[in-house]
Amino acid sequence: MAKDNSFDIVSEVDMQEMDNAVNQTSKEISQRYDFKGSNASITLENENEIKLTGEDDYKLETILDMLRVRMAKRNVPLKCLNPGKIEPASRGTVRQTIKIEKGLSKEKAKDVLAFIKTLKLKVQAQIMDDKIRVTGAKRDDLQAVIQAVKSKDFDIDLQFINMR
């Protein structure tokens, strides 16, 4: 009897690298000339959000751009950031909360699952918590699924792990 092969589709963020990117951005803010004398800051509040503060929308956008550059250098997916709206804060400053999206939401998982079914390959896919397990008899079919899912944009960063 042939043994089924499988792999998992996940959306993960390396939080240590994210913390490093936030710390590097904070250090750059303290050293840049255009931020001298301002109370602009970036902090990693918890595992799920980043808080930005600054004098105006332009400074917040600049901080977010600096963070994205640091994340890209550290291979942290940029699609995991979900910026919230800019809100007024104390002393004439503004703040923004950025959510860090980790794991596959049920809606995104259903979209990926429906896409895999349209491929008409001999594979089975099922949602397991915040990941999708894809199984099939042929490794070539599994490789075809990986290539097809990589080619389609689901607005989240997907990784393919546990290939067996």
Rank of each mutant, 00 (worst) to 15 (best):
E49C: 05
R74D: 12
V145H: 08
S105E: 14
T43F: 03
T53I: 14
N75K: 15
K152R: 14
D8L: 10
A109C: 09
C80I: 10
Q96N: 04
N82K: 15
E107C: 01
D129C: 13
D57W: 00
A114M: 10
S105H: 10
F160E: 08
Q24C: 03
D57T: 03
Q24A: 06
L158D: 07
V22D: 05
G92D: 05
F154Q: 10
N39D: 12
N39Y: 05
V69C: 01
L81I: 06
K117P: 04
E107R: 13
I146Q: 08
F160K: 11
L52N: 01
T53G: 06
D56A: 00
E12P: 02
N48A: 14
M66H: 08
S11F: 01
E47W: 06
Q147P: 01
G136S: 05
D153P: 06
E49L: 05
Q16R: 09
K131I: 08
T93C: 03
R68Y: 06
Q147I: 02
Q124R: 14
N20P: 01
V94N: 04
F115E: 11
A109W: 11
I132M: 07
T118K: 15
S105F: 11
D155I: 03
G84D: 12
I86D: 00
V112I: 15
L67K: 07
E47T: 07
K106F: 12
L104T: 04
A148V: 02
K108C: 10
Q124I: 07
D153R: 06
M18V: 12
V76Y: 14
K120Q: 14
V94W: 02
A148G: 02
M1C: 03
K106R: 12
K102D: 12
E47G: 06
F160Q: 09
